[in-house]
Simulated assay, not measured.
Amino acid sequence: MAKNSFPSQVKVAVRFLRTRASHIDVLAGDVLLSFSQPSFYFHATAAYDILRMKGVQIGKRDFYGRIRKKPI
């Protein structure tokens, strides 16, 4: 994949199926921001809640990961 090809892919038209009989034609970027990203955060939050309910000692620091910085 070319270095700058991903941003161009968000403008690709896709057919988003709502039900077997209904669909919406949208851009790929709209599906990403309107469906995929919220779904990811919902499931990550649900998994976090389940782990906490089961007694796993996790918190915000566990989600941070390593520090990302650019060379100065």
Rank of each mutant, 00 (worst) to 15 (best):
R66P: 05
K3R: 12
Y64V: 15
A13R: 13
I67W: 07
A13I: 04
F42M: 09
G65N: 01
V10R: 10
M53G: 12
I24S: 06
H23T: 00
I58F: 03
D25A: 06
R18T: 09
Q57K: 15
L33A: 12
L32V: 13
F6R: 06
F6K: 02
P38M: 11
N4K: 06
D49P: 01
I58L: 15
S22H: 14
F35C: 11
D49R: 14
K69Y: 03
Y41P: 00
R66K: 03
A47G: 11
R20S: 09
A47H: 04
T45F: 10
R18L: 14
S8T: 05
R52T: 14
I72S: 14
M1A: 05
M1L: 06
A47I: 11
P71T: 05
D49Y: 03
Q37R: 10
V26F: 02
A21Q: 09
S22C: 13
D25I: 07
K54A: 15
A47E: 09
P7Q: 01
I50T: 13
F42D: 06
Y48D: 04
A21C: 03
F40W: 09
A2F: 06
L27V: 01
S5C: 09
T19V: 00
F6Q: 09
L32Y: 10
R61H: 06
R15E: 13
V14W: 03
A21V: 06
S34F: 07
R66G: 04
I58Y: 04
V26L: 04
F63S: 08
V26C: 13
R15I: 04
D62L: 03
R52C: 11
F40Q: 12
T45A: 10
F42A: 06
R20C: 02
V12Q: 13
